[in-house]
């Protein structure tokens, strides 16, 4: 029971950055702007968060800086894809490298610790929140370990991420903004004809994407970790992208997929060097590659078709 709670607990921790990045990509791609630059935004935000938190000692300013950095990168993507009508994939690739290089260069120049930021003290991090009753319930069988071991004791960003999924569903399917955002990703000409600004809607979507990636990056460096390490996002932005496709661009499915991918990651860490009955040494590399393999299998159409937003990837050119 304890081992299971611990495994699920680390599943939740590992899926949080995936979920934030995945929902970020969801807003952007639903509006018709493909974003393979999630990875770069996570990394840039993680650096901004850790650098600011270590200089000011305030995790909240750190989170704010993370959101600002991520939104700045998102705006570069927006200008390139929406205003300059450049190639969205190329722009995403550029942002990934820009963030990877720039964070390491600045980190090295500012803190002289090989690109790392100084380790953060506990009060400069977004620490765990103890939910009410976690002390009282700790002794109760089943409910106790689940409540105090699994549900309580996470950073505020974890709760934010898991609330963001249903909120995203509500925004996209129950509000006027959401309807327009989805419409601009399917048929921008129709939205344009209705007198709405295609570019304006897409910029808003790209900024929401920046906001969520910023929170995801802040989680990596000032909540889950205690400081920035070069390339600390380590492909999480791409796993989030895989999760987005796997979830077929829907928020609640995105949450389930991110939990699944987080679970795979958590089990791979635990199975390192473990002998399994019948199989022998645990195939850790295979488990780590599973999210990518599953996504390719899904894209091949073996688990239902994954249909991206129709107008995704194409810049909108107003006819004159």
């Amino acid at each position: 029971m304890e081992a299971l709670v611990a495994l699920l607990d680390s599943t939740v921790r590992l899926s949080t950055p995936l979920l934030l990045a995945c929902l970020a990509g969801l807003y952007s791609e639903r509006s018709g702007v493909f974003d393979i630059g999630l990875e770069g935004k996570l990394l840039g935000a993680a650096f901004a968060a850790a650098a600011t938190a270590s200089l000011t000692g305030s995790p909240w300013l750190g989170a704010l800086a993370a959101v600002a950095a991520s939104c700045a990168l998102a705006l570069v993507h927006g200008v390139a894809c929406i205003s300059a009508r450049g190639n969205q994939i190329v722009s995403g690739v550029a942002i990934n490298f820009l963030a990877l290089g720039l964070t390491a260069v600045l980190g090295h120049a500012w803190f002289s610790q090989g690109g790392k930021t100084p380790p953060l003290a506990q009060e400069a991090r977004l620490g765990p929140l103890e939910l009410p009753l976690s002390e009282t319930l700790a002794g109760v069988p089943v409910l106790g370990p689940v409540w105090s071991g699994l549900v309580s004791g996470h950073s505020v960003l974890v709760y934010a991420a898991f609330l963001a999924a249903p909120l995203t569903w509500w925004v996209l399917w129950r509000t006027r903004f959401g309807l327009r955002l989805r419409a601009v990703g399917e048929n921008p000409a129709a939205v344009d004809t209705a007198g709405l600004s295609v570019a304006g809607l897409r910029y808003r979507a790209v900024l929401v994407c920046g906001l969520l990636c910023g929170l995801g990056g802040a989680y990596l460096s000032i909540a889950q970790g205690a400081g920035f390490v070069p390339n600390m996002s380590a492909g999480k932005g791409f796993i989030a992208l895989a999760a987005l496709i796997f979830a077929k661009w829907r928020p609640m499915q995105a949450m389930a997929t991110c939990l699944l991918f987080g679970f795979l990651d958590a089990s791979a860490i635990r199975l390192q060097g473990v002998e399994l009955p019948l199989i022998g040494p645990a195939p850790v590399q295979l488990i780590q590659a599973a999210p990518y393999i599953l996504t390719v299998v899904l894209l091949a159409g073996f688990i239902g078709a994954a249909r991206p937003p129709k107008a995704g990837g194409a810049p909108y050119l107003k006819e004159r």
Binding site: A84, V90, V93, A94
Partner: peptide, 13 residues
């Protein structure tokens, strides 16, 4: 970083 900038300016922009 320069690689990223080249991709950005020679490619996307």
């Amino acid at each position: 970083m320069i690689q990223g900038l080249v991709i950005l300016f020679a490619g996307a922009l």
